[in-house]
Design a binder for these strands. Structure first.
Lengths: 341, 341
DNA sequence: TTTATTTTTGTGATCGATCCCAATAAATCT
DNA sequence: AGATTTATTGGGATCGATCACAAAAATAAA
């Protein structure tokens, strides 16, 4: 392991003072071109890199942002990466980097994770959840700004950004209504086998959006057309069949998840029904692998994970100093049009 | 934004010296219990947190490990999170945290990412790829240890950990052979529409493993049973049909990807064939959403993303100082038994 | 050429911890 | 009680940068 050079070593080798080296480092204008070159050459030669910690101490600028990800232990949604990516790219543009800590949903770990971030003097913290849910932050309000992504504090004490579930439900339903579907089945999120509750915000928000779209198009809402799944594939399959065996079966089905849509496809195809001619299907989540893996490709609703990560960081950076009223922001869930409608 | 307290402030308020506060902080035994309590109380009261940067400067211990993720721009595999998780959890256990930089496959960005990490004096760097592939590191060898995960340096200059594709192909085929299948179709990775090549290591390794298993069971290998997909769903669908329309059709199909398996399921079901009774199917990747979303649930091969992340960090920590001969490690791709075989 | 200006460079203090060693306090032994 | 030991505590130096100010060098003006 070769020696690590300091600004002092560089100064010595270049025959100048530390101050001058520092000036070159921060390309301060008051340094003669010949000197600058000389210093730069030495740096290059010994592969010098300034110490961020030393800089940080003196300048109080860590250029670091913490990203804590609460991943519900059950399943780590593949979408989580998108949120991380969104946040990271936003930071990258302003020359900052990201400290990532994945804390399961274990409050003890979260506490420690938080401390690790604060000790590093992160400029802010994005606390993201794998599922859209209300959370209780397991620590007191600190003087480091926090933004919640894909979750929100029950008491609305912190700014947050979440998907607009209502809009999602509305958009999904509208896509179908615009194709003249009048009877639309809806397989919504329910209680999973393991007993864990679905995100209420998602379940209720989407249903409300669904109803709103129906009303807008003058189509009556009928209770028998909405079902709740426990997320088991077999259930999704069965619920689809049940819907299709109704006296007056739907001509379109809105599935609360792309995974549900998979089961739905299976059921419809096993009944010899054609998608989208006999029955149209709309999913929710836009999981790449499912959406374009199904035949016909699935029309679905996009959950704005990337955008939430991005938004969270941008908000953080803008409101670093002035503690304004915490915003509860919602991001649209746009339609991804493919071939199932 | 409230004042940030330093060790000096604490010392003053507690009526002791900086040295004593430092001792309390590092729970050094030589501190009288009453003093310790007094100091701890003050810390608690003002919500003091030591500065990692200051500590780092003095102790030369950053407790930081960099994680660079090359995500091929085309698609960000959902698996990437698992690698990050594996690495992070391994670090967490030894009290270190992770700096994550996602660098696309842009070498300019990678260079900068690397510098950001080095300036922060990370103890080591894990450089992970979303796809199993050979890479050329866009920077010179530095004195910070590096481990490659899910990729390897063309010149084997760095230690790396990758999935054992051969074992994967072998395991997948063996699962079928053990159920007495003698004619096994294989839809392997081919050239994608966009012209991008599939990872050669995966394609060839799996084929080799496949052949090896056949040989072991005394089943002749037949060229007509292996096909290459361009990853389009329609192609996967068609290739499956082609295989089934062979004079002597296979009784089982090994798909190079769970996504391919989806298309395969679609084709088989549209032909009225039952899985696994008429035709057994094995996938590859173990993408949660697909595997258990399909009916019957898909038997598949697990790509060890989590394990690679973990392995990389552990290797890094063990071989921090002594630069041993770089290991090229392979991790098994175990079978995930479900209901399609 | 001398003096006044403007550029460029050098230095000591500083950021917030740790560490070592000397000083003080407390405890133990004659 | 006085001398020794041992347990605590205090304070200067240090890590590697930046910064403000003074000093020196280079230019311009008189």
């Amino acid at each position: 392991m070769s020696k690590r050079f300091t600004i002092h070593d560089i100064a010595e080798r270049a025959g100048v003072s530390r101050g001058t080296v520092s000036r070159v480092l921060n390309n301060h204008p008051a340094v003669k071109e010949t000197t600058r070159r000389k210093v730069l050459d030495v740096m290059e030669q010994v592969n010098y890199r300034p110490s961020f910690s030393a800089r940080h101490m003196r300048t109080d600028n860590s250029n670091l942002v913490g990203f804590g990800l609460i991943s519900h232990d059950v399943i780590t949604s593949p979408h989580a990466v998108d949120m991380i990516r969104g946040a990271q790219e936003a930071l990258w543009n302003i020359g900052k980097v990201m400290l990532v800590i994945n804390s399961a949903s274990n409050s003890d770990m979260t506490q420690t994770a938080f401390e690790a971030m604060l000790e590093r003097r992160v400029e802010g913290i994005v606390y993201g959840s794998v599922f859209h849910q209300p959370i209780d932050l397991p620590f007191d309000s600190v003087d480091t700004p926090i933004v919640l992504a894909n979750c929100y504090a029950r008491n609305r004490e912190y700014p947050s950004v979440v998907p607009d579930e209502f809009a999602g439900g509305y958009n999904a339903t509208k896509v179908l209504l615009e194709k003249d579907h009048k009877r639309i089945g809806f397989i919504n999120l329910g209680i999973s086998r393991s007993g864990s509750l679905p995100p209420q915000d998602a379940t209720k928000g989407r249903l409300a959006g669904h109803k709103h779209a129906l009303k807008e198009f003058g189509v009556p809402f009928e209770e028998e057309l909405v079902r709740y799944t426990d997320f088991e594939t077999q259930t999704n399959f069965n619920l689809t069949k049940e819907l299709m065996q109704l006296g007056n079966p739907p001509t379109a089905i809105f599935c609360g998840t792309d995974r549900i849509a998979m089961g739905c496809y299976g059921a419809l195809q096993s009944m010899g029904l054609n998608i989208p001619n006999d029955v149209a299907v709309v999913g929710f989540d836009n999981q790449q692998d499912i959406g374009i893996g199904l035949l016909p490709n699935l029309t679905t609703i996009q959950l704005p994970h990337y955008e939430m990560g991005r938004w969270a960081v941008e908000y953080l950076m803008e409101n670093k100093d002035n503690a304004v009223e915490p915003v509860q922001h919602k991001l649209d869930c746009p339609v991804v049009r493919r071939d199932s409608v």
